[in-house]
Design a protein around this nucleic acid. Structure first.
Lengths: 112, 112
DNA sequence: TGCTATACGTAGCGTTGCTACATATCGAAC
DNA sequence: GTTCGATATGTAGCAACGCTACGTATAGCA
């Protein structure tokens, strides 16, 4: 999976993962790997800045917790985040349809 | 259609459009608009640099022509471009499947 | 003591698509 | 005749994004 492809779609994945309940960053990586059959294995340097962005945008809310001596930042969807996710799902469906159509459809033969 | 979404997929669209025969930049914009039902309306500042990239990568070959007093740069797929397009189509199908799965699938409830 | 897994973080980089602008020709409108 | 829009190409500079590479820290096991 090339890196550039993911651009603009990562936020949707993170929000969708948090739809299943609050999670911390490391667990989100695990869940995305699981949900994709291992094809989505995102580095921490991708996840954490993205979570910070989403938190600043108030789409997710974070809080610290400590379990087994390890500090974790637990994130959960805000109402705004849930609305954003719905919009992003619709966006994705349209985007995927457009790209698929343009890729698969035989274009009109060029007049040249 | 948000801008970031397209990143990493534009090259595929351009190659696919040229699969229908040689075309110049302006005509590619028209064809993409037609093939997408108007939902893909790319600015020239997006198309031309992308075409230059693809030409430098030898995936397309350009040549000047003059019709009705207007100079045009006609591009056509190279054999390498056709191979690249096949790969990109496969990439897209996998990418779309992964994102769709991650977006639609209910994730495992978090243990938290 | 060292290694691995867990867990978070950031600085810097490279790629990419877009905005805004510049240039030029042609045909139609005024 | 000049203005305007469509046709046609081009570039400089910007902003956004995901990744690499690093750093920090704790827990558990060999």
């Amino acid at each position: 999976m090339r890196a550039e492809e993911l651009k603009g779609h990562l936020d949707s994945l993170l929000l969708a993962t948090l739809e299943g309940g609050p999670r911390h960053g490391y667990a989100i990586i695990d869940e995305l790997r699981r949900a994709s059959g291992g094809r989505l294995d995102l580095p921490t340097g991708t996840i954490y800045p993205a979570l910070h962005r989403l938190e600043q945008a108030r789409l997710i809310a974070g809080s610290w917790s400590v379990a087994a001596g390890r500090r974790r930042r637990i994130y959960q969807l805000t109402p705004a985040g849930a609305r954003a996710l719905a919009g992003k799902r619709a966006d994705w469906r349209e985007f995927a349809a457009v790209i698929t159509a343009a890729l698969e459809a035989r274009p009109c033969p060029s007049p040249a």
